[in-house]
Simulated scan of single mutants.
Amino acid sequence: MPDSQIKSVDIQIAPEDLKTLKSSNYKLCFAKKVNDSYNVVWQSSSAYLSDNTFSWQPLYQIFGSNTFQGNVTVHAATNQVAIGLGDEITLDKDGLLGNASSGGPATSITLNNDYGPIHPGLSAYSTDINGRGTTTPIYVAEAPIVSGKDVLTPVEAVQVWFEQDVVTSTMFSTARSNAVEIDLTEVNSATRLYSGGQWSKPKNVALFADPATVLTIIAALTAAVVIQDLASKIASKLTGVYKDVKVEVTSMGGSTVKIEYREQPGLGGAQLAQTQALLVNPTAVDQLTGFAVEAFAQLGKGYVTLNATTR
């Protein structure tokens, strides 16, 4: 499947908001627009962190349900069949969905209903904020359709919000409180920040490098060094377990340099949590300090004083 068909949203949460949401047992929820409406919780998770990535592809399944009821999880009453945009399918008089075939609008899914009153539904594939791929419901028609044709049009837009006591596949018919809509019809990715209880577009995708995850080394060298050369020598050592660590080197005047280690920008989920924990681990602090000393030696410089701190 072409990369252009992969869509993703990055949800960043400010530290104080994260604490508030977690302490009150709020879940991070996503819904996908179909036929200009949102009415099913596509994914709901309590395992969110400061930076969370949710992605999806246009892989759909169609089904029929006997009911639509708010605050109840979706129940597929018919068989479920894989279907793509630009396809059509028939629900026969016995309530069985046949095989999908080409037909109908190119951006929609067409159901030919020979059964009678039914609530058409769609499921879609997504990769959740913990990297797990699943197919779960995104839509159920609120009113049943009778015999005839119905057209379902998924839209590349998602709604994101926080809510207590809600699970994946829950139907809803009322507006979600303090939700943000993210339109990806013209782009493949977007980032939103939740800070102070409000949604916004962040100016910097790396806003939440927790200060406690930064290791700083101040070293007075025996002679001046080219900052770019030192940074390059240290960076070449950041492999394996340290691949998600970034180094920055600046001059403090004369032969004194400041070396800062922090997580690479754009990390999310487990990667971010693991890197943050690594940067305050005493063994890792010793190893990263050792990388700096090795780089000094490679450049033919010693050090007079060296002070390493985490903050």
Rank of each mutant, 00 (worst) to 15 (best):
P282I: 12
K243N: 04
W56G: 09
I259V: 15
D36A: 11
T78G: 08
N25S: 05
A219E: 09
N178P: 00
G253M: 10
A14P: 02
M1C: 03
L288I: 08
N71M: 03
P202S: 09
A209D: 14
A76H: 06
S200P: 10
D165M: 06
R132N: 12
N79K: 13
T256S: 13
A143P: 02
A143C: 08
A308R: 00
A224T: 04
T53I: 15
E181G: 02
S123G: 05
G64V: 02
L184G: 03
S46K: 12
L122D: 02
F208I: 11
E16F: 05
G98E: 00
G104I: 08
T191Q: 05
A141C: 15
K7R: 13
S232R: 02
Q287V: 15
L97A: 04
Q159P: 07
Q12F: 06
F172Y: 15
E88W: 07
R311I: 15
A224W: 08
V241T: 11
S23C: 00
R311T: 11
G269P: 02
N113H: 10
I89W: 08
G266T: 11
E294Y: 04
A308F: 07
A235K: 11
V205I: 14
D210I: 14
S236M: 10
E294K: 07
A231C: 04
A77M: 08
V241C: 03
P137H: 13
E263R: 13
S126A: 14
G131W: 08
Q159D: 03
I89H: 05
A100W: 07
G290Q: 05
A212K: 15
I145D: 01
S232A: 14
E16Y: 02
L230T: 13
S4H: 11
V40E: 01
V226R: 09
Y60F: 12
V214I: 14
S50T: 13
V158S: 04
E263W: 07
Q69A: 12
S169W: 02
F296G: 09
S101G: 11
A308N: 01
M252D: 11
L221V: 05
Y115A: 10
K149G: 07
A76N: 08
V225E: 03
E186L: 15
K149C: 01
G95L: 01
G95Y: 02
V158K: 04
G268W: 06
F54E: 01
G240P: 04
L215Q: 03
V180M: 05
Q198A: 14
A220S: 12
L267A: 10
W42A: 14
S37R: 06
N178V: 06
Q298E: 11
K237W: 00
L272T: 13
Y242Q: 04
R311C: 10
P154L: 03
I129P: 00
Q80R: 12
G268M: 06
L278M: 10
Y125K: 10
A47R: 15
G103N: 02
L207P: 09
V9F: 10
V155E: 00
W42L: 14
S200A: 14
R262S: 14
V40S: 04
T170P: 04
Y38T: 12
S251F: 11
S8D: 05
